[in-house]
Nucleic acid binder design. Sequence first.
DNA 1: CGCGCTCTGAAAGTAAGTTTCATCCGTGGC
DNA 2: GCCACGGATGAAACTTACTTTCAGAGCGCG
Lengths: 304, 304
Amino acid sequence: MAKSPKISASHEPGGLIVHISGLLPSLSPAEQRVARLVVADPADAARRTITDLATAAETSEATVIRFCRSVGMDGYPQLRIRLAAEAARRVEPPDARVVGGDIPPGADLAQIIATIAFNDARAVEETAEQLDPAVCEQVVEAIGAAGRIDVYGAGASGFVASDFQQKLHRIGRIAFYFPDVHTALTSAALLGRGDVAVGISHTGTTSDVIEVLEQARARGATTVALTNFPRSPITEVADHVLTTAARETTYRSGATASRLAQLTVVDCLFVGVAARSRARTKKALEATAEAVQSHRVGPGRRQG
Amino acid sequence: MAKSPKISASHEPGGLIVHISGLLPSLSPAEQRVARLVVADPADAARRTITDLATAAETSEATVIRFCRSVGMDGYPQLRIRLAAEAARRVEPPDARVVGGDIPPGADLAQIIATIAFNDARAVEETAEQLDPAVCEQVVEAIGAAGRIDVYGAGASGFVASDFQQKLHRIGRIAFYFPDVHTALTSAALLGRGDVAVGISHTGTTSDVIEVLEQARARGATTVALTNFPRSPITEVADHVLTTAARETTYRSGATASRLAQLTVVDCLFVGVAARSRARTKKALEATAEAVQSHRVGPGRRQG
DNA sequence: CGCGCTCTGAAAGTAAGTTTCATCCGTGGC
DNA sequence: GCCACGGATGAAACTTACTTTCAGAGCGCG
């Protein structure tokens, strides 16, 4: 009874393979053949059935089971699962990611996708990391208490501005966005104390947006700038500056990465504002959700 | 026939869980119960035997097998192994992150930011992981060769559609976006062989977009759908289906996460198309960059 | 109201995993 | 040299897990 062939492996979640190769010399010849197969290619072993593996190791199923017990598993299924898990974990590092910014000319689409996703995700994460919660808080406060909110942005940043406007509108705040500079200027001229103006510009140098923000500030509104560059001109006309962290990249994927970063910031502000007044917000959101319901088709089930 | 209930999962080494949650709404009730258990705790599911899992989901083994097939697996053992592998890989967030998606009522802004950023970045990464390069390739080909490209999208997806249109336009492709359904329908009616129509809808159930895409297809155009749900109605009128992988979240941050995922896909397509014809693209990009230069202030670099 | 449809679980059937046991083979005692 | 012993091994019996089949339930539709 004392002769337990089972060597506990439960305490080492990570090192199953190592564990097995350590035990290898202490195993019987037939079990060693099994062990070698397993160590050589865990993922492959995990895919095999016990009969399959036994055949490959030129032995019987019984021996494979004995092997499982020898390395501390209850049975073959458990070994399989542990192997699969182990294999998955150790596959990760060898992915030579194209971390740089630019896409190599000869890249295939899979590579392009990986690169873009990496950069995009990175931009989002890094933006969040460097966002100053205190500044956000102030902005949220200002927006939450504002009589009216104007959001400015041109070109690519215009989409984000428009998105922000729509979000605020959905939770019942009075917000505007103007695709046209002149209209925006006019609107800015009508702002006053307690109102908020948000200017979005990736480079922070878009003169249209700066001008409008300046105007808003002159009228007494609280101004907020969202840009990638903390010392760009737009920051000079802003009471609060929020920055994104899209690396300087080429025109190619950079544009989108910075957009995503901006959207993330906008989302944070939005949720912040929404969280400030749960009840009112929820009601507004439900109302708008219902409004579009009739434009949805079917139950979304399979084969129509 | 082409319409197999099996949605290929073989090309996505990482995104099984995401894949499953995307498929969730298209599954039958009993299968959904199984799916939810699996998504909620993949590692645990991998440990269970099929009978066990069936019992836990209050259904029969047969249903579990059906579920396996529905998500593209050969059988239960394969699912188990894939789940184990997946679970192992995602052990990453051992920190008590608010992964669920929803924001707790008492959360402070820093927490909110962390949560949002995490979910957003996640959506981007997971979308890229499960994107099928082969399908992308076909879409890129089609767009690259198209006489004309129409991009459709309503509401939030409209921003993305518009973004895509603008991108394509910037590299010299003839692309259109219509904020209005009727105009879009009219345009779709004018499409023909060799043209491409792209429909964007997160839920895949937006009737306006589906109708327009259907129209485009009837006219002989190549149709592309971009949605989060691989079996939603919109996929039935599309020649190529691209999916995003934003988890089902509440309206709050979910909306932005799905937007980011969509933008990432659009960006991939864009870069793909651009890469197809470097020379022409580059010239077009430089020209457009110059055009907005006069609207920039100062030296365009940081220190304003 | 009945037809056809999908969804579902019970039960039968098959394959996988586990145990048992007889055999083999090397070792050491007599 | 012969025999008893014990671990290692695989064949076969056995058990459990997985898969398929099928009939009934429920639902939408004409």
